[in-house]
Design a protein around this nucleic acid. Structure first.
Lengths: 209, 209
DNA sequence: ATAGAGTATGAGCGACAGCTCGTCTTCCAC
DNA sequence: GTGGAAGACGAGCTGTCGCTCATACTCTAT
């Protein structure tokens, strides 16, 4: 595998002016990614669009990948904020209701700037950010696992890690695919939510005797 | 979005010698993709590794993308052969057995040259091959939908399209993620198969009264 | 044997990428 | 007010990439 480029910021922006520069650069990167894709997003173009010189760009970002990493980071933070809130909300709710809420939130989360989300999903491997995303996934798992733990005696399965894996992966895949590749499904989002909820809660709970 | 490059072969190789050249090029592309990733796979390097001049490469492939497309194509054909066979095998089997077999095959399929599979999964968007892969997915759906149709009265759900979407997407995601990112799970592949089967057949079948 | 289609060659062109560095401007602590 | 740190600038270097084209070799059908 290719050695991955640096993605750490080069230096901290301390004054207000430079913080604005950094913001403009990240924002410009996001826009260009959405409009033209990763390959056409040259550092010169990014600097141009941000209204910043190429030299300034390299004051704060050691490489193009670092810029994209910053975009990914910002986007992920937005998503995780949503997810974390949802998971605390559902903490005391029964399984079916909780799952339904989670699925709805997953759809919302994928819809946050979904065009950017799509590009990022496709480009993350190239930026060597897989492990960061993995970390977030793990956080998602862990939080969800925590919930399962609290409902342990209502569950059919004993292996909570496995259960969390199966549920999280399925929910993520279904909502991701629907939002990004089957937009028509969202005209009747309720149905999708309903079915996914059935899938998951049917799996978690013992079948009613 | 960026205009995608040509991916159609430039001319057909008719003599044995040139067919060997084409094969060598595709093979070299696959190797370089696995070892160094898409970005480091320059056409010059590919030609080098194939033991072929850069000129010859461009006799048969109009662009780097066309080479990668050829690799994707070859790989997809292998996978679809496996999947099609499985789907005819299970045609007459009851749901639970059929699903179990399908899941097992999905794991096998992802394991066919899994390192290449991973790189391709990551790079497909860049080569403009998404719609081809989508076509295969649709074929998978359609075949599976056909099976569901034949078992219609054993199913809880009436909307077969939706059912096929939910099942195919989940199975694909679970096996894909497990094979590529959680290899440790495969040491006990039976468990994974068992759980996925439960998830899916529990979803499809009406819960026993 | 030979013509001509098929195949192979690789030096090198044009384009553009990422990035540096010497210079100039702005800000802030004192 | 001033000196030095922080910030901004952008011409242009270095490197590599995709790809062409003029040339030469090889196969096959007659």
């Amino acid at each position: 595998m290719a050695r991955r480029p640096l993605t750490k910021p080069r230096k901290q922006a301390s004054q207000a002016r430079s913080r604005a520069t950094v913001d403009a650069l990240v924002e410009a990167t996001a826009r260009i990614l959405v409009h033209d894709g990763f390959d056409k997003a040259s550092t010169n173009r990014i600097a141009d669009m941000a209204g910043v010189s190429i030299g300034s760009l390299y004051q704060y970002f050691p490489s193009k990948e670092a810029l994209v990493a910053a975009v990914i980071d910002r986007h992920n933070r937005q998503i995780m904020r949503r997810v974390r809130t949802a998971l605390t909300e559902i903490a005391s709710q029964p399984i079916e209701r909780a799952v339904r809420r989670l699925v709805a939130v997953a759809i919302e989360a994928h819809r946050i700037d979904s065009r950017l989300h799509r590009v990022l999903t496709e480009q993350i491997p190239r930026v060597g950010q897989l492990e960061n995303v993995e970390a977030l996934n793990r956080e998602g798992y862990a939080l969800f696992r925590g919930y399962l733990e609290s409902r342990r005696d209502e569950l059919r399965i004993r292996n909570l890690d496995l259960a969390a894996f199966v549920c999280a992966t399925s929910i993520e895949a279904l909502t991701h695919t629907a939002v990004l590749y089957h937009t028509e499904m969202l005209r009747d989002a309720e149905t999708l939510i309903e079915e996914t909820t059935r899938l998951i809660s049917g799996y978690l709970q013992p079948s009613p005797v």
